[in-house]
Design a protein around this nucleic acid. Structure first.
Length: 343
DNA sequence: AATCCGGGGAT
DNA sequence: ATCCCAGGATT
C-alpha cells in the first residue's frame, strides 16, 4: 500500500487540530505531552500540558522540583505513576545522560516511564527517526484498513501490528506519518460510529469492504473489577488530618484522610453500624470507580482522631495548607462538598 | 502472559 | 452500564 502514506498525510495537512505540542520539536516538551496523553484524551490533558510547561519550563526545573509538588500539579489526571516516573526520569536524564535528552529510540527506552509508544513518538517527532508509533488509534486504523482479526491485547497481536506499522512508515517523513495515522483514528476512524464516508482511506479499507468495521479491533480480555470498602475519618475542627499512601496500591504517595478498610462487604456493613454511633455525622455510601476497582466509601465526622492510624503517621494540617498536598479525586470531591455546605 | 494503575467523556 | 482514551511497569 504505497497509497496509505500519501492519503493519510494529505488529509492530515488539511484537517489536523492545532495543538500546542505540535508547534515544537523540543524533545522535552514533546515528552511532557506524550506522558500526559498516555491513556488520556487530548481534551482532558490539554490544561495539564499548559500547566506543566508553565511550572516546569525546562528539564532542569522539573528535575529540581519536589515529587510532592509534581504530584500536586498532576492531581486529578489519574495514573499517578506517570507523574512519579516523569519526575524520576527528569533526574535520571540529568545524571545518566548529563542533561542531554536521549536522542534515539534505543536510548529513550532506557528512561523510566518511556515505553515503545512514547519512545517512537519522541524519536520521530523530535529527531525524525523512522520508527512507528502504535497506540490505541493505530490499532484501530490498521485493524480496519487491513481487516485484521488478531486480538490486539496478545503478544502475537502486539507484534503483528508493530511490524505492520513499521512496514508502512515513511523513511523521510516519519513524524507527519505517525501524526496522521493517530489523528485519523482520533477524528474519523473512531471506536463508535466512524465517519467512513469522509475517510481519506475509505477506498482501500478492507473492513469497510467486508463490513467488519464494528468488530475491529478485536480484544480478547475484559477487565474485572474488584470491590473495596473504605471508611474515612474527618475531625470536626480547624485542622485536617491526612495520611500518606506509601504502599504498592492505588494512589501511591498521595494523601487521604485516616482510613480503615474493610475486606468484605459484611465487615463493611458491620463496621458501618458501629461507626455510625460513634460519629457526629456520616455521609451516605459513595461509590468511586477506578479502572479495576469499585470503591465503596463512607466519610465519618468524628469529635477526635488519633495521631496514629493503622500504623501510619497522621499529619495535622491547617486548612490553608491543604493546597500543598496531592489528594485523589475522591478526597478532593469530598473536601469541595464540605466547603460548599458551609456556604 | 496477565494484571495493575485513574479519571472522564461518549454512547 | 460499558468502552476506551497519543501506555508502561510489574509480577
Amino acid at each position: 500500500m504505497a497509497d496509505f502514506h500519501l492519503l493519510t498525510t494529505d488529509w492530515y495537512r488539511q484537517n489536523h487540530r492545532d495543538l500546542p505540542w505540535r508547534n515544537t520539536t523540543d524533545p522535552y516538551y514533546i515528552w511532557l505531552s506524550e506522558v500526559i496523553l498516555q491513556q488520556t484524551r487530548v481534551a482532558q490533558g490539554l490544561s495539564y500540558y499548559e500547566k506543566f510547561v508553565r511550572n516546569y519550563p525546562s528539564l532542569e526545573s522539573l528535575a529540581s522540583a519536589e515529587e510532592q509538588q509534581v504530584l500536586k500539579d498532576w492531581q486529578g489526571l489519574g495514573y499517578y505513576s506517570r507523574a512519579r516516573n516523569l519526575h524520576f526520569a527528569a533526574k535520571q536524564i540529568m545524571n545518566e545522560f548529563e542533561g542531554n535528552f536521549p536522542s534515539s529510540f534505543r536510548d529513550l527506552k532506557k528512561v523510566k516511564g518511556i515505553g515503545n509508544y512514547t519512545a517512537a513518538a519522541i524519536a520521530s517527532f523530535a529527531y525524525k527517526e523512522p520508527v512507528a508509533v502504535v497506540d490505541g488509534n493505530v490499532y484501530r486504523v490498521l485493524s480496519r484498513c487491513f481487516d485484521l482479526s488478531t486480538p490486539i491485547d496478545t503478544s502475537a497481536g502486539i507484534k503483528e501490528f508493530q511490524d505492520l506499522a513499521q512496514l508502512l512508515i515513511h523513511p523521510v517523513h516519519p513524524d507527519i506519518h505517525n501524526q496522521a495515522i493517530m489523528e485519523l483514528g482520533a477524528l474519523i476512524c473512531t471506536p463508535k460510529k466512524p465517519e467512513c464516508n469522509v475517510c481519506p482511506i475509505n477506498s482501500i479499507c478492507l473492513a469497510r469492504q467486508n463490513k467488519t468495521i464494528e468488530n475491529r479491533p478485536v480484544k480478547s480480555k475484559k477487565t474485572k473489577v474488584r470491590q473495596r470498602y473504605f471508611h474515612y475519618f474527618i475531625e470536626e475542627s480547624n485542622h485536617i488530618h491526612l495520611a500518606k499512601r506509601s504502599e504498592k496500591d492505588i494512589w501511591q504517595n498521595l494523601f487521604e484522610f485516616p482510613l480503615f478498610e474493610s475486606l468484605s462487604e459484611k465487615d463493611f456493613q458491620l463496621k458501618h453500624k458501629e461507626l455510625s454511633n460513634k460519629s457526629i455525622y456520616h455521609s451516605e455510601v459513595i461509590t468511586h470507580l477506578l479502572s479495576h476497582q469499585k470503591l465503596n466509601v463512607v466519610f465519618y465526622h468524628m469529635k477526635e482522631i488519633n495521631e496514629e492510624f493503622d500504623g501510619r503517621e497522621v499529619f495535622k494540617i491547617d486548612v490553608e495548607r491543604l493546597s500543598d498536598y496531592p489528594v485523589p479525586k475522591l478526597i478532593e470531591n469530598y473536601i469541595d462538598r464540605i466547603n460548599n455546605e458551609r456556604k
